[in-house]
Amino acid sequence: MAFKGQIVIDIERCKGCGVCLEACPMHCIELSKNVNGKGYNYTHTVNDNCIGCASCAIVCPDGVISVYKVKC
């Protein structure tokens, strides 16, 4: 069974630490070249490979990632 996922990032709370990038098995997140209101290069998704595993969210120190997932 395969899963498809999507993450929603609270960009203004993200500090751009990059820990989620290391945790993502599907390489679907990167740090943006743009910055948020605090000047951090926030995390964002770069492709549709997300499987909703929530690895990024559970290592995020600031709890900025919500994860959605469906079977497909």
Binding site: G5, V8, A54, A57, G63, S66, Y68, K69
Partner: peptide, 26 residues
């Protein structure tokens, strides 16, 4: 996919809305 019924992870309700003062990655 972003619908309440598909939500599998979000920040706990026992956390306040305050942005933590810790350094990035702490």
């Amino acid at each position: 996919i972003v619908k309440p019924e598909n939500l599998v992870y979000q920040k706990s309700k026992v956390l306040t809305e305050n942005v933590m003062h810790y350094c990035p990655g702490c």
